[in-house]
Write a protein that binds this DNA or RNA. Structure first.
Lengths: 211, 211
DNA sequence: AAGTCTATGTATAACTT
DNA sequence: TAAGTTATACATAGACT
């Protein structure tokens, strides 16, 4: 039923546009992860678009985070404490993931926007940039993820050993500090949603990916 | 011919891997530019991979640069002066493009690697990162490009007005200084090839894209 | 190594629920 | 509004040049 040859122009219909954005974003991330695997390219992807309320961030599967780290992060996270406290496990897991994604995005925004990275573009201008797609190789253990936890839909991307080693070498506390440092460069002008924060460098588990 | 379902694993055969990298990279950039157009996302892409000697960088079509800017850049560029001075026009154009791409990559590397952007990852580690895929929305006028100048193969990506306006507002000299500033954050540990350098913010010409 | 070809796998627009 | 289905357009592995 895909009969039209896809008119390559801005989709004015908001609903259709959003649907397309979602589908194509998913496809793009899958392609990226495949390229990453096939050619041993390390990459994680962060996608942000004002149009889509939900961030889509390439990340290590939530499942790979040690249980201890999970609970610790949850305790530090007001948005979870303010919830009805105990919900269905699935629900909680989902929220954890979403928050993690927000956090990752926040960190990335800070990386990009802070400390003269944008030399000559003042921050007001920067905050207006439709910063929408960043695919970057800095964060170890990133994966191309999908909404659901279907493992086959989100193969892990390869990760560069040296970075992996560096991050894994940290003890959890040290790592946490590192993350906090990253987060502290908060730029008030970048209107990136990020309330309660957590962050987790990914463990390099589940190295085998199948399509 | 394409009978296998593509074993999603690292391609050990160097030749095949490179071919795949090239093909898929092209596809990825096309998809990105399509997404960019369809959903009004600004993005340019920079792809770097040690495996592939030739950088692939999303950029405004070389053709859109005013002639004056072209010649100025060439004069500033040793690699061109050291060439046999006058070559076939096509050849020259090709080299200009390549160099521009290198330059863009250099700038991006500096952006990423300088001034604490990588907090906690020392630069030695950073230089080893397989920084391979960056798709970022900072550079105005970027496009998804292909080796050849086939316009239909590289539709322009949308560009955010505010950034565009900012850059276009600069006079060429001011712009040049801005570029030089970006480039001056050179990090000796990042082994990114970049000899003679030029850079050009793209003019926002050719706004209509067809697949 | 780099481009062309084509059969086949994949992505996805439009439809349905 | 989101999730699932299906027919079609598109991407691309492998072969050939």
């Amino acid at each position: 039923m895909t009969r039209k040859k896809v008119k390559l122009a801005y989709i004015t219909d908001d609903s259709a546009g959003k649907a397309t954005y979602k589908k194509r974003t998913k496809g793009l991330m899958k392609k990226l992860s495949e390229l990453s695997t096939l050619c041993d390219i390390d990459a994680c992807s962060i996608m942000y678009n004002p149009m889509s309320p939900n961030l889509r961030v390439g990340l290590p599967p939530w499942e790979t985070i040690p249980e201890m780290e999970k609970s610790k992060n949850m305790l530090n996270q007001e948005s979870f404490l303010s919830q009805k406290t105990i919900k269905a496990a699935e629900q909680l897991k989902k929220h954890c993931k979403e928050n993690w994604e927000k956090e990752m995005t926040q960190v990335m925004f800070n990386m990009i926007s802070s400390k003269g990275v944008v030399h000559g573009l003042n921050f007001d201008a920067l905050s207006e940039i439709n910063l929408s797609v960043i695919i970057i190789a800095l964060i170890p253990g990133c994966t191309a993820t999908d909404e659901d936890d279907n493992a086959s839909a989100m193969p892990r991307t390869g990760t560069k050993d040296i970075v992996q080693a560096y991050v894994n070498k940290m003890d959890p506390m040290q790592r946490h500090q590192w993350i906090m440092e990253l987060m502290s460069n908060n730029n008030p002008q970048t209107h990136v949603g990020g309330d309660g924060m957590m962050f987790q460098s990914g463990e390099n588990i589940n190295p085998n990916n199948d399509l």
